[in-house]
Design a protein around this nucleic acid. Structure first.
Lengths: 206, 206
DNA sequence: AAAATCAAATGACATTTGTCATCTGCCGCG
DNA sequence: CGCGGCAGATGACAAATGTCATTTGATTTT
């Protein structure tokens, strides 16, 4: 069972590597320290499981997970974090992560990894308690499910106000062409066809 | 003071003609029995005052008034009706009618006509009572304020679903060009610039 | 210092969109 | 009968939109 570990803190990755090394079934193929690396390593090594921290400088773990899952929906990604932040949990679920564990649950980490390997989804104790309530309160698909940067969001808002590309460009001090480029990639990400569909999407699901 | 009378019921027009004829200042130039006629007669005779029923078969009085006022905002149109229907009152106000009288107020009709002639706006007693409340409860501009035909509405809905002109055309069995033409006139009527603004308008005010 | 990275810009391009003038049947009305 | 008015269609056009490949400049990384 091949693993890739991603954590900001070198101490954590090495510690984890040691802990996991005690189990003969587990093999840590590589470690990394940023979301970007996670994407690269996943592409290159196709590990059975990707164990990743959420809070990291540079690209955060959730976004990286999203990138990977967009390409490989079958990827088994286990998110690891110190805090049990509600928003993170929900988002992790929505994008299709296979697990969300608190670092304090480290004694259950190995069983959890094996469970995920067998196709299950695993959540830490605290998370499990919160889950039903969280799901009840957020039934709608959200904008934050996609990788939308701050600037992209500004552009979306402009579109949803009925502005033209030129007007959006002026209001954000960009060139019209740049706005077009941003818009183009936004549409691709959201799988929409034109600005009108985008405006509708934003007004109804945003 | 030239008047044009419009009412479905010939009995009413003739009766009114008689009543109004008792006043030497008033002169009924013509009478008609439908909204269309109202528009024609107004265009042709440019009466000082147009006295019109609201409920009529064929084009109703409000729509006709709207058509006329769109072209001639200075037109003095006095609406006459049997019922004091809230929706009608509000709509009449919004489109710029100069008065709204109940037929039961017929004893005040002549003074009202003269008042309107002098630039005032007149409402029957019952209407006056309801007015403030009605205005308070409907602050929003509405789609129905504009002359939107059934087919036009279909097209607007299509736009608000994010369909392209071609797709709208197919769904309504029209040519793409025709859809473009309709859309063009819709945008002009609503003073909007493009389909995106239309979609936004429909989703928020529609 | 060299290489990689990223935001922003550019230029070229095919489509779509919005506007306008004009044409075609068709129906009602005098 | 003929005429005017409609709903639709057409064709031509400029402008806006969406897509892509490529370039620039600044910043980071190594």
């Amino acid at each position: 069972m091949n693993l890739v570990l991603i954590d900001d803190d070198l101490l954590v990755t090495t510690a984890l590597k040691t802990i996991l090394g005690t189990d003969p079934e587990l093999h840590v193929s590589a470690t990394g320290s940023s979301g970007k690396e996670a994407v690269c390593l996943y592409e290159r090594l196709r590990p059975d499981i990707l164990l990743m921290d959420i809070r990291m400088k540079e690209t955060d773990g959730l976004t990286a997970a999203q990138t990977i899952l967009a390409e490989h929906p079958e990827a088994k990604i286990l998110l690891l974090t110190t805090f049990s932040d509600d928003e993170y949990i929900v988002r992790a679920l929505k994008i299709g992560a296979r697990g969300y564990l608190l670092k304090q649950d480290y004694d259950r980490l190995i069983p959890a990894i094996k469970a995920v390997y067998n196709g299950q989804t695993v959540f830490g104790t605290e998370v499990t308690e919160k889950l039903p309530r969280l799901l009840r309160s957020t039934p709608e698909p959200d904008l934050c499910e996609y990788h939308i940067s701050e600037k992209e969001l500004e552009i979306i808002k402009g579109v949803a106000e009925g502005l033209s590309n030129r007007e959006i460009a002026e209001s954000l001090y960009l060139s019209e062409g740049t706005v077009r480029n941003y818009l183009s990639s936004i549409l691709a990400k959201l799988e929409l066809r034109d600005r009108t569909q985008l405006a509708i999407f934003y007004l109804t699901h945003g």
